[in-house]
């Protein structure tokens, strides 16, 4: 029991940090620009593909730096030449723009790398067991992922709260006119923020690419869950996103470990449900089978009970 709890907790933390890594760029862009970037998961996928390709040409460590940079440059170009023209038309136009962009990126990677998963194996330098717990190994690449995820959190917090440019960025959302009157380049700030958000997505893609499967459906596989993280955490709150990621990661991992169903609960309460009763099939579903629903259940509950999320400052 202790073994399962320990390993589940570890798996939960790993999954939670993976979710945070995936959603940090989205949170940044949303909190500092007010844009809900539907193409976020697609940029993440682009990062995975770029790191796979660069990894073949120049090796893993350079790819770890270059892939996010390229995603950042792509992000800057998207904001500068596309999204910046859409801002004035409001949030619906922005969402539609990024929505279309997601499809464009998906088609692009399909054209370049094909529909099948590419052989994006864990790079040999980080493919060794880091330590053992109860006879299970813990791979080094997961350790690197956790490190990067926490580094992202620390970097974003420091950059936004403690630096001058961070203050300017924060002001750009709420007081854009005052800021430009003071001589700051507000569109430039937005380009910077969007580029940074995309670079973070690209960095997540480097690691996520070989943790998951690098294929054109990668964006769909993680797209919904990052929105859950951002909404549950509180739109625009980094710390909230971290807490939400960990909550979802740990909760989902533990639910998988629970082999009981509502039927067992009724039995424990002394209620007999016969095979013929109308809801028998539904009641007999093990909690473990329903694990992937947990994050979305959390999303719906959160929107009903506390629409601003855990640490959010404004309602959805």
């Amino acid at each position: 029991m202790l073994e399962l709890v320990t390993i589940s907790l570890l798996n939960g933390i790993v999954y939670g940090l993976l979710l945070f890594m995936l959603s940090s760029g989205l949170t940044l862009i949303f909190s500092m620009m007010g844009v809900l970037n539907f193409a976020h998961a697609s940029v993440f996928m682009l990062g995975a593909y770029l790191s796979f390709q660069l990894g073949r040409w120049v090796g893993f460590w350079p790819a770890l730096v270059l892939a996010p940079l390229l995603c950042g440059v792509a992000g800057a170009a998207i904001e500068r030449y596309g999204l910046s023209r859409v801002h004035a038309r409001g949030h619906v136009a922005e969402i539609l723009f990024t929505f279309g962009l997601a499809y464009l990126i998906e088609e692009l990677v399909t054209m370049v790398w094909g529909r099948n998963a590419v052989a994006n194996a864990v790079p040999a330098v980080i493919d060794f067991p880091l330590f053992h717990v109860f006879g299970s190994t813990f791979p080094a690449y997961k350790g690197l992922m956790m490190l990067i995820s926490l580094a992202m959190f620390a970097f974003l917090n420091l950059a936004l709260k403690k630096t001058r440019i961070g203050l300017v960025i924060q002001a750009a959302l709420t007081h854009p006119r005052m800021l430009s009157a003071l001589g700051h380049d507000v569109p430039g700030v937005f380009v910077l923020v969007f580029a940074a958000g995309c670079a973070l997505a690209g960095l997540a893609g480097v690691i996520g690419g070989f943790m998951l499967l690098t294929q054109p459906t990668l964006a769909h596989a993680i797209g919904p869950i990052v929105f859950v993280v951002v909404v549950v955490g509180g739109l625009g709150s980094l710390a909230g996103a971290l807490i939400a990621s960990m909550l979802i990661g740990i909760l989902q991992t533990f639910v998988v470990a629970v082999d009981y169903s509502l039927l067992d609960l009724f039995r424990a309460l002394g209620l007999a449900v016969s095979r013929g009763s109308p809801l028998y099939e539904l009641l007999a579903i093990k909690l473990a089978t329903a694990a992937p629903v947990v994050p979305y259940l959390l999303l719906v509950l959160m929107l009903i009970v506390r629409p601003r999320g855990l640490l959010g400052t404004r309602d959805v």
């Binding site: 589940s8 798996n11 790993v14 999954y15 299970s136 869950i225 989902q252 991992t253 998988v256 470990a257």
Partner: peptide, 8 residues
Amino acid sequence: NDFSPYVA
């Protein structure tokens, strides 16, 4: 996405 909990 992640089968680790099942493997555990």
